[in-house]
Simulated scan of single mutants.
Amino acid sequence: MPLLRLRDGAELFYKDWGNPEGAIVTFSHGWPLSSDNWENQMAFLGEQGFRCIAHDRRGHGRSTQTWHGNDMDTFVDDLKELFEHLDIKDAVMVGHSHGGGEVTRFLGKHGTGRVRKAVLVGAVPPLMLKTAANPEGTDKAVFDSFRDAMRRDRAQFFLDVATGPFYNFNREGAPRSEGQIRSWWQQGMNTSFKTAYDCIKDFSETDFTDDLKKINIPVLVLHGDDDQVVPFGASGEKSAKLLPQGKLKIYGGGSHAIHNINVDEVNADLLDFVRS
């Protein structure tokens, strides 16, 4: 099992799939999941000759369950170590939800020297939290309710998220996948309670506005207009306008998990973007 020992002794699990000599595409997963959430995209692009690399953020999946460091700056410093360890260059970075925040902060903090393009999928930037300067955001009470639900019964809360708003399985007539639900729940429960709890603050209160403005490479923003978790009007739409070279594609009726539900369409969009 490939593991990178980080500067503080924590171990970071990563996958390295596809053609070892191929152009590199990296994947950053959402909350509270793992690199497994990207398997459809990694398998597809790997079959097209790309080298696909994805990691489990610290506290998630098969990486060390650290007590401290469950914050965006630590996460992107970990990712920088992975890029250096694998000598990743000319990569396309892809991030979903909280992982889209990771991609954005990585590029804002560490620059674009090793990256040529990026893709944000249902991503949390610029800022999820409702503030005076961000009236389109979500009330803090919503995120407080997440924390309360975790403390009452994390297992049931994670099941409720997966059966409901994450995939839009709560929409009338929506086809429901029991397998997707079980996969989400399993990934979530494999994440440290402390990490999952701390990351509610991290994904909801981290402001990525300045990071977006700094990114000087092409960025494709993919977002469902029926995203119940990260509403389009407060995120994808605003991010595309803040990015110097942002390009937006809206998935009509799309959920927060378009890469899991609209698999063929997302794969085609990724392939077209990384090849161009």
Rank of each mutant, 00 (worst) to 15 (best):
residue 3 L to S: 11
residue 14 Y to T: 11
residue 14 Y to H: 12
residue 20 P to C: 02
residue 24 I to Q: 07
residue 26 T to P: 13
residue 28 S to T: 12
residue 33 L to A: 13
residue 34 S to N: 03
residue 34 S to E: 03
residue 47 E to G: 15
residue 49 G to T: 11
residue 49 G to Q: 12
residue 52 C to R: 11
residue 58 R to Q: 12
residue 62 R to K: 15
residue 64 T to S: 14
residue 66 T to Y: 12
residue 69 G to H: 07
residue 73 D to W: 13
residue 78 D to L: 09
residue 79 L to C: 02
residue 84 E to S: 10
residue 89 K to L: 05
residue 96 H to S: 04
residue 96 H to L: 02
residue 103 V to N: 07
residue 104 T to I: 04
residue 105 R to Y: 07
residue 105 R to A: 13
residue 107 L to K: 07
residue 117 K to P: 04
residue 118 A to N: 07
residue 125 P to A: 09
residue 127 L to S: 02
residue 128 M to Y: 06
residue 129 L to T: 03
residue 133 A to W: 01
residue 133 A to P: 05
residue 135 P to V: 03
residue 138 T to L: 14
residue 139 D to Q: 12
residue 139 D to Y: 08
residue 147 R to C: 07
residue 148 D to A: 13
residue 150 M to K: 07
residue 151 R to F: 04
residue 151 R to I: 02
residue 152 R to I: 15
residue 154 R to A: 11
residue 165 P to R: 10
residue 169 F to L: 05
residue 170 N to G: 08
residue 178 E to I: 00
residue 180 Q to H: 14
residue 180 Q to Y: 14
residue 184 W to D: 07
residue 190 N to P: 00
residue 193 F to L: 10
residue 197 Y to S: 14
residue 204 S to L: 10
residue 205 E to S: 08
residue 206 T to G: 05
residue 215 I to K: 09
residue 216 N to M: 05
residue 216 N to Q: 11
residue 218 P to D: 10
residue 222 L to K: 01
residue 224 G to K: 00
residue 226 D to E: 14
residue 227 D to R: 02
residue 231 P to Y: 00
residue 233 G to N: 13
residue 238 K to Q: 14
residue 239 S to H: 06
residue 244 P to N: 05
residue 258 I to T: 06
residue 258 I to S: 02
residue 264 D to W: 14
residue 267 N to C: 03
residue 267 N to Q: 09
residue 268 A to V: 01
